[in-house]
Structures are given as C-alpha cells and as structure tokens.
C-alpha cells in the first residue's frame, strides 16, 4: 500500500504561502515521481508560479515542508537548492542577453570547476569547457549560433538555450515555468519535442497553459485552483473530471472540446 519514499524525488507537505490576507498556496501536498514529466496546471492566479518560487526558495513558505530525495530542504537558500540539482527556469526567458550563446552555457558548466572566485586567472582556462558547451548546444540545435550575442536570438531559440544551460548543471529535477508561453506555433512544437528529449533519465515539473503540450508530454498532472490542489492524475482522468473542466475553462463540458481544439490550432 505505502509506496517507498525514494520513489518520489520531490514532496511537499502542507506547503502554504500566505501574503497579507491572501493565501496564494494553500496546504499543497505534491508528490513528484522520479522520471516523470509532471505538469502543474490551473487557471490564472491559481498559484502555480508561487509554488515554483517556493520550491526553489525564491519565496519563503509560510508553513509546510519541502523534501527533495527525502531530505528536508525547506531552510536552504535558492543557490543551495540549485546546487542540490533542482534547477528552475522562468516565465520570461532566463538568459544572459549580452553574453554569447556559448558563454551562457559555459557559465552553468563553470560552477563545478571550482574556479568561479578566481579573479587573478585568465578566463582562457574556461575554454576547456567549450567542447562540452558546444555538445550541449548541439543537443538543442543551437551549435551554429555559438558565437552569437544572445540578445539577437529569436524567442524560441532563447528558450532552447535556456534548456541547454539548465542541462549543463546536470539537474536531477528541472522546473520549467511555462516553457512555451508566448511562442508561435512552430516554436511550441520545437520546444515540446526538446522537453520530451531531455526528459530521459530526468524528472521534470512544468507549469504549462497549452493543454495540447500537456497532453503530449505529461505523465501526471496536478490541477491547482485558488492555491489548493483540485485533483491529480493522468491526462485522461484529469480532463474527464467535471470539476477541472469547470475550474480551468470556466465553462460547461461541451464547450471544452471546441476551446481545446482552438488552442491546438492556434
């Protein structure tokens, strides 16, 4: 009956975040299974991004616990959580705009080299990471842009770069905050394929609005509503849930299919 604890890479226990007079995240118990792509969905303002900020400690939970691989990481600072292997992305693409594409990835590789405080050494010693950085860029199809200044990349490519950078730190758990938000049709396909590809041997928790992407990628879905978990399950069971349809779409069941088709087509 009880599953072994190590099956879950990340768990939250009664995670709660209250801002002044407003509970953004209310008593959330998440269990993210290792190896899964786990999607967090819900209407605007459901608290999805707040959950992300809590998990990575960009926000301090009001109460509750966060367990990573069975270890309580609630008191850790954001950078320390990242060093444990929980790496997040942001809603707006998180790149270093005025560094080259290669340098972006190299920054992530550099940390484990242990020379990041060495201000007296030449940056040329970082060139030994170029090979690895290029390989990572290749895995997301950006190798020909290695020397481009990042600010000149298209939005979709910036997101791809962001994923390459995240992969560079060899994360155990990737947290992707709306990876396809604001993207054109083509880029959505590109990025969701990429996520599928990098999800091998990894666990991914993602916030995503595009239900088509969710249906294609997610092994498990948690639906948040007003900061609390409404339901959890695979796509078939979640999408069949009348409460989800009502909460997420704000409409009766009949409308959903047309809406969803519209979203897929867009």
């Amino acid at each position: 009956m009880t599953q072994p604890a190590q099956d879950f890479i990340l768990e939250t226990r009664n995670l709660t975040k209250a801002f002044k007079g407003f509970t953004a995240v209310d008593d959330v118990n998440l269990n993210i299974q290792r190896g899964h792509i786990h999607a967090l969905i819900g209407p605007n303002g459901a608290g999805k991004t707040t959950v992300f900020n809590l998990l990575t400690k960009f926000l301090q939970p009001t109460s509750g616990k966060i367990l990573f691989q069975g270890e309580d990481i609630t008191p850790l600072k954001p950078a320390a959580i990242a060093r444990k292997g929980v790496i997040r992305s942001f809603q707006i693409s998180a790149v270093f705009p005025h560094l080259s594409v290669l340098e972006n990835v190299r920054i992530a590789l550099q940390r484990k080299e242990g020379n990041s405080f060495h201000f007296w050494r030449s940056e040329k010693i970082l060139n030994r990471l170029n090979h690895k950085a290029l390989a990572l860029l290749e895995s997301v199809g950006l190798e020909s842009f290695a020397n481009t200044v990042t600010v000149d990349l298209s939005y979709g490519r910036k997101r791809a770069l962001e994923i390459a950078t995240t992969l560079a730190v060899e994360p155990e758990l990737m947290l992707l905050d709306e990876p396809t938000q604001g993207m054109g049709h083509e880029d959505v396909g590109l990025v969701s394929d990429l996520i599928k590809k990098v999800s091998k041997d990894r666990t991914i928790l993602m916030v995503e609005h595009n239900l088509h992407v969710v249906s294609k990628l997610a092994d498990r879905i948690t639906v948040l509503q007003r900061g609390a978990i409404l339901t959890e399950g695979d796509y078939a069971s979640v999408s069949a849930d009348a409460r989800v349809r009502e909460a997420y779409m704000g409409t009766a069941a009949d409308d959903v299919d047309t809406k969803q088709t519209a979203e897929v087509a867009s």
Partner: peptide
C-alpha cells in the same frame, strides 16, 4: 584581469540576470 577572469564571467552573468545566476547555483 578581474574582468576577464572566471570570476569576471560570473560577475557579468549576475549583472545580466541575477535570478538566473542564482538558479544555476551561484550565491
């Protein structure tokens, strides 16, 4: 030298996007 050192690289990354640098594990 400081500007063109491994440390300088991290510094520039922080200037460019502090949250991202944090999320990559830099204090």
């Amino acid at each position: 030298r400081t500007i063109h050192s491994p440390f300088g690289q991290v510094l520039k990354a922080i200037r460019e996007n502090e949250d991202r640098a944090t999320s990559l594990g830099y204090d």
